[in-house]
Write a protein that binds this DNA or RNA. Structure first.
Lengths: 126, 126
DNA sequence: CAGTATCCTTTACGATACTG
DNA sequence: CAGTATCGTAAAGGATACTG
Protein backbone atom coordinates (compact mmCIF):
# COMPACT_ATOMS: atom_id res chain seq x y z
CA UNK A 1 0.00 0.00 0.00
CA UNK A 2 1.02 3.59 -0.39
CA UNK A 3 2.52 5.21 2.68
CA UNK A 4 0.05 7.20 4.76
CA UNK A 5 2.45 9.05 7.02
CA UNK A 6 4.31 12.29 6.64
CA UNK A 7 7.15 13.77 8.63
CA UNK A 8 6.80 17.41 7.72
CA UNK A 9 4.09 19.79 6.62
CA UNK A 10 5.75 20.22 3.24
CA UNK A 11 5.66 16.49 2.74
CA UNK A 12 1.89 16.47 3.14
CA UNK A 13 1.46 17.99 -0.30
CA UNK A 14 3.02 14.85 -1.75
CA UNK A 15 0.48 12.62 -0.04
CA UNK A 16 -2.32 11.79 -2.48
CA UNK A 17 -4.87 11.35 0.27
CA UNK A 18 -4.08 14.66 1.90
CA UNK A 19 -3.75 16.65 -1.32
CA UNK A 20 -6.33 15.08 -3.62
CA UNK A 21 -8.77 12.81 -1.86
CA UNK A 22 -9.40 15.05 1.13
CA UNK A 23 -10.68 17.63 -1.31
CA UNK A 24 -13.37 15.32 -2.62
CA UNK A 25 -14.62 14.26 0.76
CA UNK A 26 -16.51 16.57 3.05
CA UNK A 27 -20.24 16.79 3.30
CA UNK A 28 -21.24 17.78 -0.24
CA UNK A 29 -18.60 17.16 -2.89
CA UNK A 30 -19.25 13.49 -3.63
CA UNK A 31 -22.95 14.22 -3.74
CA UNK A 32 -22.46 17.03 -6.25
CA UNK A 33 -20.25 14.90 -8.47
CA UNK A 34 -22.80 12.08 -8.44
CA UNK A 35 -25.61 14.49 -9.23
CA UNK A 36 -23.81 15.30 -12.48
CA UNK A 37 -23.02 11.72 -13.40
CA UNK A 38 -25.65 11.27 -16.10
CA UNK A 39 -25.65 14.67 -17.76
CA UNK A 40 -24.64 18.29 -17.24
CA UNK A 41 -27.06 20.29 -15.16
CA UNK A 42 -27.80 23.91 -14.50
CA UNK A 43 -27.20 25.45 -11.10
CA UNK A 44 -30.84 25.40 -10.07
CA UNK A 45 -31.28 21.82 -11.23
CA UNK A 46 -28.35 20.64 -9.14
CA UNK A 47 -29.74 22.44 -6.13
CA UNK A 48 -33.21 20.93 -6.54
CA UNK A 49 -31.68 17.50 -7.19
CA UNK A 50 -29.72 17.53 -3.95
CA UNK A 51 -32.50 19.10 -1.93
CA UNK A 52 -30.89 20.07 1.35
CA UNK A 53 -28.04 22.30 0.27
CA UNK A 54 -28.07 26.07 0.40
CA UNK A 55 -27.26 28.27 -2.56
CA UNK A 56 -24.15 29.71 -0.97
CA UNK A 57 -22.67 26.35 -0.05
CA UNK A 58 -23.46 24.86 -3.46
CA UNK A 59 -21.66 27.72 -5.19
CA UNK A 60 -18.67 27.32 -2.92
CA UNK A 61 -18.37 23.60 -3.52
CA UNK A 62 -18.90 23.88 -7.27
CA UNK A 63 -15.98 26.32 -7.39
CA UNK A 64 -13.72 23.95 -5.49
CA UNK A 65 -14.59 21.04 -7.79
CA UNK A 66 -14.06 23.20 -10.84
CA UNK A 67 -10.69 24.33 -9.50
CA UNK A 68 -9.50 20.74 -9.09
CA UNK A 69 -10.42 20.03 -12.71
CA UNK A 70 -13.49 17.85 -12.17
CA UNK A 71 -16.13 20.24 -13.49
CA UNK A 72 -16.66 22.55 -16.44
CA UNK A 73 -18.72 25.70 -16.05
CA UNK A 74 -20.53 27.04 -19.10
CA UNK A 75 -22.30 30.39 -19.09
CA UNK A 76 -25.12 31.22 -21.46
CA UNK A 77 -25.77 34.92 -20.85
CA UNK A 78 -29.48 35.31 -21.14
CA UNK A 79 -31.30 36.97 -20.10
CA UNK A 80 -32.12 35.07 -18.14
CA UNK A 81 -28.62 33.81 -17.48
CA UNK A 82 -28.10 30.04 -17.56
CA UNK A 83 -25.01 28.39 -16.09
CA UNK A 84 -24.40 24.74 -16.75
CA UNK A 85 -22.01 22.42 -14.91
CA UNK A 86 -20.71 19.14 -16.29
CA UNK A 87 -18.04 16.54 -15.53
CA UNK A 88 -14.70 16.80 -17.28
CA UNK A 89 -13.01 13.55 -18.36
CA UNK A 90 -11.07 13.70 -15.10
CA UNK A 91 -14.32 14.16 -13.22
CA UNK A 92 -15.93 11.25 -14.99
CA UNK A 93 -12.95 9.13 -14.12
CA UNK A 94 -13.23 10.14 -10.49
CA UNK A 95 -16.92 9.29 -10.37
CA UNK A 96 -16.04 5.88 -11.79
CA UNK A 97 -13.60 5.32 -8.95
CA UNK A 98 -16.13 6.62 -6.46
CA UNK A 99 -19.09 4.48 -7.38
CA UNK A 100 -17.90 1.20 -5.86
CA UNK A 101 -17.62 3.02 -2.58
CA UNK A 102 -21.12 4.46 -2.90
CA UNK A 103 -22.59 1.07 -3.64
CA UNK A 104 -20.67 -0.37 -0.72
CA UNK A 105 -22.10 2.29 1.57
CA UNK A 106 -25.57 1.42 0.39
CA UNK A 107 -25.02 -2.30 0.92
CA UNK A 108 -23.48 -1.93 4.37
CA UNK A 109 -25.68 0.85 5.71
CA UNK A 110 -27.57 -1.53 7.98
CA UNK A 111 -24.37 -3.07 9.34
CA UNK A 112 -23.04 0.35 10.23
CA UNK A 113 -26.26 1.47 11.88
CA UNK A 114 -26.40 -1.71 13.91
CA UNK A 115 -22.78 -1.23 14.97
CA UNK A 116 -23.63 2.27 16.18
CA UNK A 117 -26.56 1.01 18.25
CA UNK A 118 -24.38 -1.68 19.82
CA UNK A 119 -21.60 0.77 20.59
CA UNK A 120 -23.93 3.35 22.08
CA UNK A 121 -25.61 0.74 24.26
CA UNK A 122 -22.40 -0.90 25.46
CA UNK A 123 -20.58 2.34 26.13
CA UNK A 124 -23.40 4.02 28.01
CA UNK A 125 -22.95 2.07 31.24
CA UNK A 126 -20.01 -0.26 31.89
CA UNK B 1 -27.14 5.39 -9.91
CA UNK B 2 -28.51 5.72 -6.43
CA UNK B 3 -30.40 8.91 -5.71
CA UNK B 4 -28.35 11.65 -4.09
CA UNK B 5 -31.12 14.00 -3.03
CA UNK B 6 -33.30 14.18 0.02
CA UNK B 7 -36.42 16.15 0.73
CA UNK B 8 -36.40 16.19 4.50
CA UNK B 9 -33.86 15.99 7.28
CA UNK B 10 -35.26 12.65 8.40
CA UNK B 11 -34.76 11.28 4.93
CA UNK B 12 -31.06 12.09 5.08
CA UNK B 13 -30.50 9.16 7.42
CA UNK B 14 -31.61 6.86 4.60
CA UNK B 15 -29.01 8.26 2.23
CA UNK B 16 -25.94 6.00 2.23
CA UNK B 17 -23.60 8.82 1.36
CA UNK B 18 -24.84 11.09 4.11
CA UNK B 19 -25.14 8.41 6.79
CA UNK B 20 -22.22 6.10 6.03
CA UNK B 21 -19.69 7.51 3.61
CA UNK B 22 -19.55 11.00 5.10
CA UNK B 23 -18.37 9.40 8.29
CA UNK B 24 -15.35 7.87 6.61
CA UNK B 25 -14.26 11.01 4.88
CA UNK B 26 -12.79 13.96 6.70
CA UNK B 27 -9.15 14.66 7.17
CA UNK B 28 -7.99 11.62 9.11
CA UNK B 29 -10.34 8.61 8.92
CA UNK B 30 -9.24 7.12 5.61
CA UNK B 31 -5.63 7.58 6.67
CA UNK B 32 -6.22 5.76 9.95
CA UNK B 33 -8.00 2.87 8.24
CA UNK B 34 -5.18 2.52 5.73
CA UNK B 35 -2.59 2.62 8.51
CA UNK B 36 -4.21 -0.52 9.92
CA UNK B 37 -4.51 -2.32 6.63
CA UNK B 38 -1.65 -4.77 7.07
CA UNK B 39 -1.89 -5.58 10.76
CA UNK B 40 -3.32 -4.34 14.05
CA UNK B 41 -1.31 -1.62 15.70
CA UNK B 42 -1.05 -0.05 19.09
CA UNK B 43 -2.08 3.53 19.70
CA UNK B 44 1.43 4.90 19.73
CA UNK B 45 2.38 2.98 16.59
CA UNK B 46 -0.57 4.44 14.67
CA UNK B 47 0.38 7.90 15.81
CA UNK B 48 4.00 7.50 14.75
CA UNK B 49 2.94 5.91 11.46
CA UNK B 50 0.73 8.85 10.51
CA UNK B 51 3.13 11.46 11.81
CA UNK B 52 1.17 14.69 11.78
CA UNK B 53 -1.83 13.87 13.95
CA UNK B 54 -2.23 14.89 17.57
CA UNK B 55 -3.04 12.46 20.35
CA UNK B 56 -6.40 14.01 21.06
CA UNK B 57 -7.56 13.95 17.45
CA UNK B 58 -6.34 10.40 16.93
CA UNK B 59 -8.30 9.21 19.97
CA UNK B 60 -11.40 11.01 18.74
CA UNK B 61 -11.25 9.50 15.26
CA UNK B 62 -10.44 6.00 16.52
CA UNK B 63 -13.59 6.16 18.65
CA UNK B 64 -15.71 7.19 15.69
CA UNK B 65 -14.35 4.38 13.51
CA UNK B 66 -14.86 1.88 16.31
CA UNK B 67 -18.42 3.08 16.78
CA UNK B 68 -19.26 2.49 13.11
CA UNK B 69 -17.95 -1.06 13.38
CA UNK B 70 -14.73 -0.73 11.44
CA UNK B 71 -12.27 -1.16 14.29
CA UNK B 72 -11.76 -3.40 17.28
CA UNK B 73 -10.10 -2.08 20.41
CA UNK B 74 -8.21 -4.52 22.61
CA UNK B 75 -6.83 -3.55 25.99
CA UNK B 76 -3.94 -5.35 27.62
CA UNK B 77 -3.77 -3.82 31.09
CA UNK B 78 -0.12 -3.65 31.87
CA UNK B 79 1.43 -2.07 33.40
CA UNK B 80 2.28 -0.53 31.15
CA UNK B 81 -1.09 -0.54 29.47
CA UNK B 82 -1.18 -1.55 25.80
CA UNK B 83 -4.16 -0.83 23.59
CA UNK B 84 -4.32 -2.38 20.15
CA UNK B 85 -6.57 -1.41 17.27
CA UNK B 86 -7.38 -3.63 14.30
CA UNK B 87 -9.80 -3.80 11.38
CA UNK B 88 -12.99 -5.79 11.76
CA UNK B 89 -14.22 -7.78 8.74
CA UNK B 90 -16.43 -4.80 7.92
CA UNK B 91 -13.43 -2.53 8.18
CA UNK B 92 -11.34 -4.75 5.93
CA UNK B 93 -14.13 -4.73 3.43
CA UNK B 94 -14.28 -0.95 3.53
CA UNK B 95 -10.54 -0.64 3.02
CA UNK B 96 -10.89 -2.89 0.00
CA UNK B 97 -13.49 -0.55 -1.47
CA UNK B 98 -11.36 2.44 -0.58
CA UNK B 99 -8.11 1.37 -2.17
CA UNK B 100 -9.06 1.95 -5.81
CA UNK B 101 -9.83 5.52 -4.89
CA UNK B 102 -6.51 5.93 -3.11
CA UNK B 103 -4.60 4.58 -6.08
CA UNK B 104 -6.62 6.85 -8.36
CA UNK B 105 -5.66 9.84 -6.22
CA UNK B 106 -2.05 8.88 -6.48
CA UNK B 107 -2.23 8.46 -10.25
CA UNK B 108 -4.09 11.71 -10.87
CA UNK B 109 -2.32 13.89 -8.33
CA UNK B 110 -0.38 15.74 -11.02
CA UNK B 111 -3.50 16.33 -13.11
CA UNK B 112 -5.26 17.85 -10.14
CA UNK B 113 -2.33 20.05 -9.18
CA UNK B 114 -2.03 21.29 -12.75
CA UNK B 115 -5.76 22.03 -12.85
CA UNK B 116 -5.40 24.11 -9.70
CA UNK B 117 -2.54 26.13 -11.18
CA UNK B 118 -4.53 26.78 -14.35
CA UNK B 119 -7.63 27.80 -12.42
CA UNK B 120 -5.72 30.10 -10.09
CA UNK B 121 -3.96 31.75 -13.02
CA UNK B 122 -7.07 32.19 -15.17
CA UNK B 123 -9.29 33.38 -12.37
CA UNK B 124 -6.83 35.93 -11.01
CA UNK B 125 -7.37 38.50 -13.77
CA UNK B 126 -9.99 38.10 -16.49
C1' DC C 1 -31.38 32.60 -12.74
C1' DA C 2 -27.26 32.43 -10.57
C1' DG C 3 -25.03 34.23 -7.87
C1' DT C 4 -22.84 37.83 -3.47
C1' DA C 5 -22.85 39.65 1.02
C1' DT C 6 -23.47 39.25 5.90
C1' DC C 7 -23.94 37.15 10.13
C1' DC C 8 -24.00 33.41 13.07
C1' DT C 9 -23.41 28.51 14.78
C1' DT C 10 -21.23 24.24 14.66
C1' DT C 11 -17.60 21.23 13.90
C1' DA C 12 -12.87 19.93 13.37
C1' DC C 13 -8.54 20.54 14.59
C1' DG C 14 -4.04 22.11 17.11
C1' DA C 15 -1.35 22.86 21.40
C1' DT C 16 -0.42 21.91 25.83
C1' DA C 17 -0.80 20.06 30.40
C1' DC C 18 -2.14 16.47 33.37
C1' DT C 19 -3.23 11.30 35.01
C1' DG C 20 -4.03 6.07 36.13
C1' DC D 1 1.38 4.10 27.43
C1' DA D 2 -2.86 5.71 26.35
C1' DG D 3 -5.50 8.45 27.29
C1' DT D 4 -8.51 13.01 29.38
C1' DA D 5 -9.10 18.03 30.20
C1' DT D 6 -8.91 22.63 28.77
C1' DC D 7 -8.40 26.33 25.74
C1' DG D 8 -8.12 28.58 21.51
C1' DT D 9 -8.33 28.82 16.27
C1' DA D 10 -9.98 27.92 11.76
C1' DA D 11 -12.89 25.93 8.41
C1' DA D 12 -17.53 24.48 7.03
C1' DG D 13 -21.94 25.20 6.93
C1' DG D 14 -26.97 27.39 7.66
C1' DA D 15 -30.16 31.39 7.19
C1' DT D 16 -31.41 35.27 5.13
C1' DA D 17 -31.29 39.31 2.28
C1' DC D 18 -29.84 41.54 -1.78
C1' DT D 19 -28.36 42.05 -7.10
C1' DG D 20 -27.03 42.10 -12.36
Amino acid sequence: MLPVGVESAAEASNCPIRSVLSNVTGKWRMIILLALEDEPKRFGAIKRCIGDITQRVLTENLRALQRDGYLTRTVDPGPPIAVSYGLTPLGQDLVGALKPLVYWSNDQMDSVKTARLVYDREMREP
